[in-house]
Amino acid sequence: MKIGIVIPAHNEALTTSDCLASVQTAMKQLPSTITAYPLVVLDSCTDDTESLVKAAGVDSLSCNYRHVGQVRDLGIRHAIDKGATWLACTDADSVVPPDWLVEQIKHITEQTPDMICGVVSVDSWAHLTPQTKQAYIAHYQDKMGHRHIHGANLSFSAKAYLAVGGFTKLPCHEDVDLVKKFEEQNYDIIWSNRVRVTTSSRLDARVTEGFAGFLANLEKGNLE
C-alpha cells in the first residue's frame, strides 16, 4: 500500500514546519510494507511557505485557485498518479500525532472502509473565552460514531475517490460535499476518534466558513 498525504496551504509560514514534522514522524511509524508520499499544494502563497516546504524535503505543487476543494483535488490526483491507493488529508495549520497513519491502517485492516472521518482537538483555548470552550465541548462528540467532518482529518481509498468524482470546486465545505458523495453511493465510512489531529484555534480564517470561522462565530456569540 502507498499512502498519499495531501496538505493544502495558503500563506501558512507560521505553522507549516510543525505540520510537516508531525507528518514525517507519523510516516516513520508505518511498517516497511507501507510507504507514504507527502505533498503540499501551495495555493496563492506570498509568504515563506514554499521555502519551508522545500527545507523539510517535501514535494509541492503550486496553483492559484483560492478554492480549497480544487486545491485538494489537484494534490490528490497527483498523488494517485504517483501510485497512492489510500489518501490522507490534513491541513497546514494542523499537527498529527505519531499514530495518525497507523490508526488508519488498523481500521483498514480490521474493517476495510472506503473512507475514515477523524476528529480534531483544539491546540489552545488561551485566547478564547471560557464560554466559547464550554460551547464547543458541548457541541463536539469526541467518540466513535461521531458525525463530524474535517478536511484536516479525512482519508479515503483512491478507487472510491475517483469513482465519486472527487472534491468539488468549492471555496468551503468541500469535505462535507465529498462525504455526501460517498454516502449517496453507499461507500463504507468509519467515524473514528482513534484517528485524530490537533488543529489551530486561530480566528483569522483562511476560509470564511471553515473551522476558524466556526470558532470565531462561537466567540462572537459569547462576547455579545
Results as ranks from 00 to 15, higher is better:
M1P: 02
K2H: 08
I3N: 02
G4H: 03
I5V: 04
I5S: 03
A9V: 00
T15P: 03
A21I: 07
T25C: 10
A26L: 08
M27G: 04
M27H: 06
M27E: 12
M27P: 00
M27S: 04
Q29T: 14
L30H: 04
P31V: 06
S32V: 02
S32H: 07
T33L: 03
T33D: 15
T33R: 05
I34L: 04
T35N: 09
P38Y: 09
V41I: 14
L42A: 11
L42C: 11
D43T: 07
T46W: 00
T46K: 03
T46H: 05
D47K: 01
E50H: 00
S51E: 14
S51L: 05
A56Q: 13
V58E: 06
D59S: 12
S60A: 08
L61S: 09
L61N: 06
H67K: 05
H67E: 14
G69W: 02
G69Y: 03
Q70A: 10
Q70M: 07
V71C: 15
R72E: 04
R72T: 02
L74H: 08
G75M: 02
G75Y: 03
H78Q: 14
A79R: 01
I80Q: 11
D81Q: 12
G83E: 15
G83M: 06
L87C: 12
A88R: 05
A88D: 13
T90D: 15
T90Y: 12
A92C: 09
D93S: 06
S94Q: 09
S94K: 07
V96T: 12
V96C: 13
E103N: 13
Q104N: 13
T109A: 09
Q111M: 06
Q111F: 07
P113G: 09
P113Y: 10
I116N: 13
I116P: 11
C117S: 13
V119H: 10
V119N: 11
D123L: 00
S124P: 01
A126R: 06
H127I: 00
H127N: 12
L128S: 07
Q131V: 11
T132Q: 13
K133Q: 15
Q134M: 12
Y136K: 02
I137K: 10
I137N: 13
A138G: 14
Y140P: 11
Y140H: 15
Q141S: 15
D142C: 05
K143Q: 15
G145T: 13
R147S: 15
H150N: 11
N153F: 01
N153M: 06
N153R: 04
S157R: 08
S157K: 11
A158V: 05
A160E: 00
V164G: 03
V164H: 13
F167N: 05
K169Y: 02
K169N: 12
P171R: 01
P171S: 11
E174G: 06
E174W: 00
D175P: 02
V176F: 13
V176N: 13
V179F: 02
F182R: 01
Q185E: 14
Q185D: 09
N186H: 08
N186S: 08
Y187H: 10
D188K: 04
W191Q: 08
N193M: 08
N193G: 07
R196M: 11
V197K: 01
V197Y: 01
T198K: 07
T199G: 00
S200R: 00
R202M: 03
L203I: 08
R206G: 15
R206E: 15
V207Y: 14
F211H: 10
A212H: 05
E219A: 14
G221A: 14
G221V: 01
G221T: 12
N222M: 14
N222Q: 15
L223R: 12
E224L: 10
